[in-house]
């Protein structure tokens, strides 16, 4: 565990907490893409199946359970409890366009052709693009609440910090995993436009509004 990974995990945890608090406190999930949240639930479910087979550490087990549980809790809040506030008219991204290519790619490019390994690889590929429905929703409505921007910033930072972690591990431990690195790069690049707007607008107290 190095500092980049620790801060990456904490940033990921912070993103989840921000999102759940926003929905719970405002009793609304307006501006949040349910499609992205469904994709995250699929990502964590397919990645953390190894909870059943391998024990790594208490930290690892705890975090995995938290990520899986909170992803289902978010989907529940959006599609059941606060269903009336869900922005379904703007959340129109077709997630099969992300899921199907991720499945095919995982079947073709993987480390080992076993069920758990292919599912792990699928989750890595799917995670890299899972935020697209959310970014699409923001671009469709042309704006995002500050709290939603903070959520997106924390969520985007997490994989960027993981990239630094992988650079560190390459030099310090001679360890690298090309599948995770390439997917992580794609994932981080997708946030770049948002990061720019966040730093130039939201941090200066303005609302995130896309140029007309």
């Amino acid at each position: 565990m190095n500092i980049f990974r620790l801060f990456g995990d904490l940033s990921h945890l912070l993103a989840i907490i921000i999102l759940l608090l926003k929905i719970w406190k405002t009793r609304s999930c307006a501006g949040i893409s349910g499609k992205s949240q469904i994709l995250f639930a699929i990502v964590y479910t397919s990645r953390y199946l190894d909870l059943m087979t391998t024990y790594i550490s208490a930290y690892n087990t705890f975090m995995k359970i938290v990520f899986v549980a909170t992803s289902y809790a978010t989907v529940f809040l959006m599609y059941m409890k606060f269903k009336a506030t869900y922005d379904r008219n703007h959340d129109t991204f077709r997630i099969e366009f992300l899921i199907v290519p991720a499945v095919i790619l995982a079947l073709v490019i993987n480390q080992e052709f076993t069920v758990l390994e292919v599912l792990w690889t699928f989750s890595i590929y799917l995670e890299s693009v899972a935020i697209l429905p959310q970014l699409f929703l923001v671009s469709k409505t042309g704006e995002a609440e500050s709290i939603t921007s903070h959520y997106l910033f924390a969520l985007g930072s997490y994989r960027a910090l993981y990239l630094l972690n992988w650079v560190y591990r390459y030099y310090a431990e001679d360890h690298y995993d090309l599948i995770a690195i390439v997917a992580g790069l794609v994932q981080t690049v997708l946030y770049c436009d948002f990061f720019y707007l966040y730093i130039t607008k939201v941090l200066k107290g303005k609302k995130l509004q896309l140029p007309a």
């Binding site: 190894d50 550490s57 690892n60 480390q111 972690n165 360890h175 690298y176 995993d177 995770a180």
Partner: peptide
């Protein structure tokens, strides 16, 4: 490189 090392990540 040991792939299983990546599995201890989240």
């Amino acid at each position: 490189t040991n792939h299983s090392l990546t599995k201890d990540e989240l």
